[in-house]
Amino acid sequence: MISFLLRRLLAAVPILIGVSIVVFITIKIIPGDPVASLLGPTSTPEARAALESRLGLDQPLPVQYLQWVWHLLQGDLGTSISKQTQVLGLVLDAFWNTLILTAFAAILAFAMGIALGAVAALRRGKAVAALGNAIALISISLPQYSVGLLLIIYIATGTGLLPTAGMYDAIGGGGWGDLFRHIILPGVTAALVPAGIIARMFRTTVIDVMSMDFIDALRARGMSERRILLHAFHNTTPTLLTIAGLQLGYLLGGVVFVETVFSWPGIGLLVFQSIAQRDLPVIQAGVIVSALAFVVINLVVDALHATIDPRMRAHS
């Protein structure tokens, strides 16, 4: 098990290097001359050359990349252009809020997705299964910004029961209850698409497992259908974990729209605000932190997968 985890950790290293290269490229594809734009159109060629060498931009690209990674490893993700503070602090504060929203949405998405998928699989051929399939397919197609706005219009302002934005009330806010009231609508909005995807994948998995020979063998050994179902669900967990890994990544990305619509103070909102101000270091930092989180999540998922499925430990 430990050697399995070490191998997985090792395998994550090239991925992380790749991630850093991709992000570095997004910095380099920014059109225009960064030095010229920093110094303004009236600057002299000498001043530009001086700044260029101070920023290391006269170095060949691989050297620039290594310098950039070196800073990255020290936690230096650059300075926010609009806020003039270290990006790392900004992003980490926001990331915590994003994690709360993502975790809540993930729980909702899995609860809804598993329920829908199980119904669609176990009541195959019945009307309720067709309904479940239809709900899953539609929810996959829903744009989060549309859904979020409609929820604000009809649920939040329509009933007045739930807040329209933010994480806590500005006056007299705070505490778990307040957080819960605020997280419901963005959580539901963020959960819909993953719930649909989970439902569809889970349906396929349950059908696959239920048609495996050992299920039939359990029946032949005299087990009740309920008990057989338990064994079947146990056998869907490896696939569920794989789905979880993918969907958590989707949730981390999708929160940009949700956080923007609901003004949830997470990475997504930070990224959105930075777009208008062309504050690229913040956007890049947001992407790096999310990708890092995604890689860590997948490591955890792999480890869980290996504890559940003995074949995983043997393979790879």
């Binding site: 050992f214 063998a217 146990h234 056998n235 967990t237 499925d309 003995p310």
Partner: peptide, 8 residues
């Protein structure tokens, strides 16, 4: 091979 639960 198929008659046994692979996870237990």
């Amino acid at each position: 091979s198929a008659a046994l639960d692979p996870l237990r």
